[in-house]
Design a protein around this nucleic acid. Structure first.
Lengths: 105, 105
DNA sequence: CGTGTAAGGAATTCTGACACG
DNA sequence: CGTGTAAGGAATTCTGACACG
């Protein structure tokens, strides 16, 4: 009946990692990580004080971004890919909701 | 044939969480968390600069400690429990190694 | 014993800008 | 476009100590 798209209680989604550690984990510079945020490829949480907090899922996404950049892809292309992905997800979700509520037409 | 005692690549074991976030996650004060380290109940990593880094497993252990403290247990008692646990683990490990290497006597 | 707090300093992170290409 | 860097400041964390009980 549809695969869960997220495990809310899971460690993977919790935004608890500072940018310094994220940098170590990904091999990217802090500058690069902040830039990818500016280009809306990644969306950390913020502490009250304003420091960025990433999840392991974010870290994986950063590695993904890094690979695509290495392949010569540009940030706006990567962003378009992401938009496409979430669009597909939205359509699937809507389809599931329609089915669940038995809405016809 | 023995259950794996740790998943090394797992997010749960990675020491990536600062003390501020650990405090938020556990509800403990930073003072308390540092004290439990002093009493050797918890063992964070350190960054080059010296800041403490915890894993989700550490955070769970802290919650565990918090519960035992609430029950009136003292730090040294909690520590003894931990020592007992790892002692049992060591004996089991040795047993498995003995079996694997077919050492008799 | 376990925890709060003020103190002073060091490590970490932030933003906006200039540079290069 | 993507990234490095120096600049100045703010948020975060550290240790050792004093306090209370």
């Amino acid at each position: 009946m549809g695969i869960p798209l997220s495990e809310p209680g899971s460690y993977k989604q919790k935004k608890v990692i500072g940018i310094g550690i994220a940098s170590e984990l990904t091999g990217l510079s802090e500058r690069q990580i902040r830039y990818y945020e500016e280009r809306r490829l990644i969306f950390p949480d913020r502490s009250k004080g304003g420091t960025r907090k990433y999840s392991f899922a974010d870290v994986e996404k950063l590695v993904d971004i890094a690979n695509k950049m290495e392949d010569g892809m540009q940030t706006f292309e990567i962003r378009k890919e992401e938009l496409k992905k979430s669009d597909v997800r939205n359509k699937m979700l809507r389809g599931q909701l329609n089915a669940a509520f038995k809405m016809r037409k």
